[in-house]
Design a protein around this nucleic acid. Structure first.
Lengths: 141, 141
DNA sequence: CGAGTTGTTTTGATTCATTCAAAACAACTT
DNA sequence: AAGTTGTTTTGAATGAATCAAAACAACTCG
C-alpha cells in the first residue's frame, strides 16, 4: 500500500517523495480533511514534515488529479481522494461534517442550467446543506 | 429610493442607519460584490464609514434576509441583493465574474440527492463553472 | 420633546488559512 | 556517480474576516 502510493505518484508523472506518499496515504479512503489535519496525520509518521510542505504536496497532487479540493462556505479548503467522478457533497450545518453523494441526475456534469447566460459551462458543483444523522439525534443545543 | 432602503430595513426589524442604507443601496441591483468593493462604494457617499462597519452591516443584513452571501471557491465572500428564491450561480473560471441562474429544476431547493446519507437536507446550492462570454471571445491568454 | 436604553459604529488589534521566497536538499536522469 | 530539476525547509508576509472596548446614534418612553 505504501508501494501503491508510489505507483500512483509515478503514474501521474510526479516525483516520489516521502511527504507525498504520506499525504496520499493520509487521504486515501479517509473522507475530507483540511491541510492542518493532513499535516497532523503526516507528522505521526514523518515528524520532520513542515506544514508548508503539506500545502505544496496538496497543491501538486490536486493539480495532477490525484486529489480533489473542495471549499464549502465557512470551512477551510478540504481535500479528498475520490476524484474523476464529479460527485457532490452533503455538509452538516451544525458540525460541518462532509459526506459524499453520487451524481444527482445521470452523468456528470449532472445538471444543465435553463439559461447559461452566455457561459460555456464545464462543471456543475452541487452542495447540499442540512443536519447530519448525529446532529439530528442530539438534543437541540 | 433612499427612503426605500429605510423602509426595507425597518420592515426587517433593523435600526435605520446611514451605513446600512448605503450598503443596501450599493448592492441593490448591482450584482455580486465583496466586502471591500461595497466598502469603496459606500465610502463614495459616506466617507467616514469604516471597513469593519461594512462587515457588521453585511452580516446584519444577511442575517435579516435582506442580503444573501455566497462564497465561490477561490473568491472572497460575495453579497447580493436577490434573496428568497435560492437561485444559483455561474462563475467564470478565468475572470471570476458571477452571474445568476434561475433554479434548475422546478421549485427550490431544486434538487434531491438520490441518497441523502442520513442528512436532513434543507438547501441545495449549485455553482456552475465555465467561461463567461467576454472571456470566451478573448484570445486565449 | 428630551432622557435613557439598546444596539451600532469606530478604532485598533488579532486570528486563521494560505501564499511567497530563498536556501538547503533529495529524486530521477545519463 | 555526478548533474539537473524540482521539492522541502525555514521564515516571513498577505488577505479576509473576526474580536473587543469605547464612543456614539437610533428608537422608545415618559
Amino acid at each position: 500500500m505504501a508501494t501503491d502510493s508510489a505507483e500512483r505518484l509515478r503514474a501521474a508523472g510526479l516525483k516520489v517523495t516521502a511527504p507525498r506518499r504520506a499525504v496520499l496515504a493520509a487521504l486515501t479512503g479517509h473522507g475530507h480533511l483540511d491541510a492542518e489535519t493532513v499535516f497532523e496525520r503526516v507528522r505521526g509518521e514523518l515528524p520532520t514534515t513542515s506544514l508548508q510542505a503539506v500545502y505544496g504536496v496538496l497543491s501538486a497532487l490536486t493539480g495532477a488529479g490525484l486529489l480533489r479540493r473542495i471549499e464549502p462556505a465557512g470551512s477551510a479548503a478540504l481535500y479528498e481522494s475520490r476524484t474523476g467522478d464529479n460527485h457532490h457533497h452533503l455538509v452538516c450545518t451544525k458540525c460541518h461534517t462532509v459526506a459524499d453523494v453520487d451524481c444527482v441526475v445521470g452523468e456528470p456534469p449532472c445538471l444543465e442550467p435553463t439559461d447559461a447566460g452566455g457561459f460555456a459551462i464545464h462543471t456543475a458543483e452541487v452542495t447540499f446543506w442540512g443536519l447530519c444523522e448525529t446532529c439530528r439525534s442530539e438534543p437541540a443545543a
